[in-house]
Nucleic acid binder design. Structure first.
Lengths: 250, 250
DNA sequence: GCGCCGGATTGATCCGCGTCAGGATCGGGG
DNA sequence: CCCCGATCCTGACGCGGATCAATCCGGCGC
């Protein structure tokens, strides 16, 4: 980096990249952000970062690595509600509210900045623009959950998979971790199965089908969009819910 | 009512009943609430109250009648995301954010109080306690959407149905429209199908099965819990997500 | 180099649920 | 009173996806 201003270096973070896509952040916004961003923690794969029912949680901003939030059912199966990628907020609700109603677990080794509740609220007061951006991101997450619900309720396995990969691509592009061609993806077929409400075996078959149809290829930890337009067409992917307008509040 | 204070009469409303279950509302809270509550509107069955992509919406508080929010898929099918019953907020997100990403449609004739964005924000500033209560309700709604997602992803048709009816019962009890025995329910089997990701035919079969197993009976617009405990057991219903702690913010 | 283990891959079989098709019932309007 | 539309109900059949069971592959510890 040529910048000598340490505050500006925060612009390299996925979090700042993502929020910048929505609001123009001032130098003082960035200063507050880099302050909040300072308390780094590492998490190993498979150890819950946030646990269901636990109180007085911190929230985190994912700096690197992937995580997933999920609920366990009696019977051992689980449903993954959402994946988190760098730049995503994580556990925001468990800070605003007292308890978390689901678990969050790292999929790869994770680096995340811990955000204490009081720091977050202080930052919100100091820089309303930052608060606006964070709320915008939160509302986008909620829209994704709704779309995921539609996936499970009314789309076939292949449509689900195609839709999921397109959405993931769009999210990663926002933080510079993907382009139209594809992206690196650490998700196993078991994880895909738990997210899409399928069995791992069927996930495999669906991926083969999409590959043989020349739409997407997901192999060796890499997703390649072989025919982006056809894929969008196939699953009736509508970007609208991802880049909706921002919040008016605050 | 023996009360002579007109403000206190708002306590009869489902909205106040619901929020009272969470916070103790002061007389001035009630005054603000009854003020916000004043602008009544009626809606006929089948005419969208909130339309996807529409901007500058109002929000509503349901006073009487039932509604549902849903998304349409190309192909004509739809997925119902949630039902709204009296006391529920409706379109809160489309006020906080600029556009709505789904439709809301009355299922029965509906009476609702229109809440303008500026009135809502003003009320929030005037009575933080009211804001707290509203945010609590919103977070509860979100938890229900997540639980609904788990339904579609990982529960069988009968478990889904059982879970859905139990949840609905719990919600209605909060506003005095149900007891442990059951409740009046205007939902057709087509609506249930669109919500649970099933075909109407299969909804019918599942209802018969639950009835013959002596768990619930849903006939002639009335849901009767024949064996509440067994039903809870059957679907592993966990009330925790419905009566979680309230928000800390504001 | 060998054994082990988690993930990917594939085939065979089974069953939950969708689809199609037809009745029955009921309330409302002409 | 009769017709019509909406809703409920039921049977026959087929398909999508689960389940069970192998096999294969690459990475890693020793």
């Amino acid at each position: 980096m040529i910048d000598r201003d340490p505050v500006l270096s925060i612009l390299d973070s996925p979090f700042a990249r993502k929020l910048s896509a929505f609001v123009r952040l001032s130098h003082s916004d960035l200063a507050v952000m880099s302050d909040v961003y300072r308390r780094r923690r590492s998490f190993a794969v498979g150890v819950d970062m946030i646990h269901q029912g636990q109180t007085d949680q911190s929230a985190y901003v994912l700096a690197s690595g992937w995580a997933c939030s999920y609920k366990i059912l009696p019977g051992g199966t689980r449903q993954i509600v959402d994946f988190q990628v760098p730049g995503d907020f994580l556990g925001l609700r468990s800070v605003l509210f007292r308890t978390s109603d689901h678990n969050v677990e790292p999929i790869t080794p994770v680096q995340a900045s811990e955000v204490k509740q009081r720091d977050l609220l202080a930052a919100f007061t100091a820089t309303p623009r930052l608060a606006t951006a964070v709320l915008w991101a939160a509302s986008r997450d909620e829209a994704m959950v709704v779309e995921h619900l539609v996936d499970l309720g009314r789309r076939t396995a292949s449509e689900r998979m195609a839709h999921f990969l397109l959405e993931l691509g769009a999210r990663l592009r926002l933080v510079g971790m993907a382009d139209r061609a594809g992206f690196a993806c650490p998700l196993s077929q078991y994880l895909l199965a738990d997210a899409l409400g399928l069995s791992a075996v069927h996930v495999n078959r669906v991926l083969r089908e999409l590959r043989e149809d020349g739409l997407v290829t997901f192999q060796k930890g890499r997703v390649v969009f072989d025919d982006y337009e056809a894929l969008v067409e196939f699953t009736a992917f509508d970007r609208a819910y991802l880049d909706h307008e921002g919040p008016l509040l605050i």
